[in-house]
Each structure stands twice: as structure tokens, then as C-alpha cells.
Amino acid sequence: MTLTPSRSPCGALKATIAGETCLLRCSGAMYVVAHDVLIVADLHLEKGSSFAVRGQMLPPYDSAATLARLEDEIAELNPARVVLLGDSFHDSRSIPRMAEADRARLERMAFGRQWLWLEGNHDREALGAGLDRLPGAVIETLAVGTLRLVHEPRPGDQFGEVAGHLHPAAKVAAYNRSVRRPCFLTDGRRIILPAFGAFTGGLNVKDAAFSGLFATRPMAAALGRDRVHALAWTSLL
């Protein structure tokens, strides 16, 4: 399948994934146009408070910052469905640690639309125990047109798979130094989304964890401040 991304007026890349037109947004969210679905992966809410419990102090504002970015995406696109693609919470006790203001923000965002939490390896226990405190429903996987949404990418050529989990990041040389940015990774048949959370970091797409996931060399769609940059595999470090 030939991947031919084009620039959207909002700075996103418009790409066809398994026959579905998708907008790869600067925030790291993906919008499936024909189905009015917004997808984000790996929020890792309450990661800062999780580290604090273990004695490693981080600024306790990651959940608020992450939810504010998601709120901006929802305000702009007004999607009928929002799918959180797993690892939305960092550990099993994240939901009780959430500030009331952050839980109220979730309720406001979910109001009037379908809100779906897809289970990830970090938050399966949290979602099982805390759904009464959250809007929406918990699912294991979801079909959206020709796309199949999962948390962790499966090995081999998985046509239509949309996954997170690996936190892909692209590394390139620019201005006599290396630059590393979160990115989408796709060959037009499947796609791996960048982590959406404020404290999530990224794994270089040249890491062995990505080996064998794509039938052909994928494109990295790196997140910039106001646009997503399509990068050829051969340009990556």
C-alpha cells in the first residue's frame, strides 16, 4: 500500500490507514474522519502522584496538563466517540488519587458522546475497580470501519490495526544536533500512536521492539509545535 500523506489546514497530516481517512494531529491524537472518532493512547494519568508515593517527587500537574490537551482536541473536533487506547492510568491506584477537578473535567468531556476506555497493561486493574468513578465504558478492543483498535501491537502484518503501548519517537539530525520527537508510525496498513500523556517519554522507532511490525518501511509522522512532519525511514537516526 502506498502511503501519500497530505497537509491539513490545522497542521495535521491526512493519511489513509487501511482505507480509512485519518487526521494525525499535532497533539498526538488520531481522528477517523468518516466515523467521527477521536483516538488517543497512553495518557498515563497520575504518573506524577505514583512516583510521589514511592518517594520520587515530580511536579503533580501531569494529569491536569494531559486532560487540558485532550479537552482542546474535543472542543475543536466535537467527536461523537472518544476512544482511550489503553494505559490511560499509570497504576492500579491512580483513580482514587485523581483530584476532583480532574474527574469533573473527564465528566464534562464525556457528556453527550460515547466515551470508551480500552484496557491496557498498566490500567486493566484500575479500570476494573474504578469504573463507578468514571464516565463511559471499558472495552478490550473495537472495530472502527476497517480499523481494529487494540492497546498493544501484535506481531506480524496486522492490516488495519491501531495500537499504542510502545510510545514511538523519531530521532533526526537538525542544526548540527539530534532532535527527538514523539511520532505516529505507519506504513498505511497499520499505525502505532504516540503517547499522549505529559510524562510519558518515547522509544526510538529504530528500537528492536518495532522490528517485524511493518511489511514495508514505515513513515514517522513526528509531532511539531504547530504541524506534524512526515519523515522517511531513511532520514531517522
Rank of each mutant, 00 (worst) to 15 (best):
T2N: 07
T2A: 01
T4M: 13
S8L: 14
L13H: 06
K14R: 15
K14N: 14
K14Q: 15
A15K: 02
A15G: 12
I17A: 12
E20H: 06
T21R: 13
R25A: 01
C26G: 05
C26T: 15
S27K: 05
A29Y: 09
Y31M: 05
Y31Q: 04
V32A: 05
A34W: 01
V37W: 00
V37A: 09
I39S: 04
I39W: 01
V40Q: 03
D42C: 08
D42H: 06
H44E: 03
L45Y: 00
K47S: 11
S49R: 14
A52S: 11
A52K: 00
Q56V: 15
P59G: 08
Y61T: 14
A65S: 04
A68C: 06
E71H: 13
A75N: 05
A80E: 13
R81A: 11
V82A: 06
G86I: 01
G86N: 05
S88V: 13
S88E: 03
F89L: 09
H90Q: 08
D91H: 10
D91P: 02
R93H: 13
R93I: 03
S94H: 04
S94D: 01
I95F: 02
D102Q: 07
R103Q: 13
A104Y: 00
L106I: 12
F111C: 13
R113Q: 13
Q114V: 12
W115L: 11
W117E: 04
G120F: 01
N121R: 09
D123F: 01
R124I: 00
R124T: 02
E125V: 15
E125T: 08
E125W: 07
A126Y: 13
L131R: 15
R133I: 00
R133S: 14
L134A: 08
G136F: 07
V144I: 15
G145N: 07
L149N: 06
V150D: 09
E152K: 12
R154M: 13
G156T: 07
G156K: 07
D157W: 05
G160W: 04
P168R: 06
K171W: 03
K171P: 00
A174S: 13
A174P: 00
Y175W: 07
Y175I: 02
N176K: 12
R177H: 14
V179R: 11
V179F: 09
R180I: 09
P182T: 02
T186K: 03
T186P: 01
T186C: 12
D187H: 04
G188A: 08
G188L: 09
I191G: 07
L193M: 14
P194R: 08
F196W: 05
F196K: 00
G197R: 07
T200E: 01
L203Y: 01
N204R: 12
D207V: 05
A208F: 09
A209Q: 14
G212K: 10
F214Q: 08
R217A: 05
A221H: 10
A222K: 07
G224Y: 10
D226W: 02
H229M: 12
A230S: 14
A230T: 11
W233H: 06
T234R: 14
L236R: 02
L237F: 09
L237Q: 10
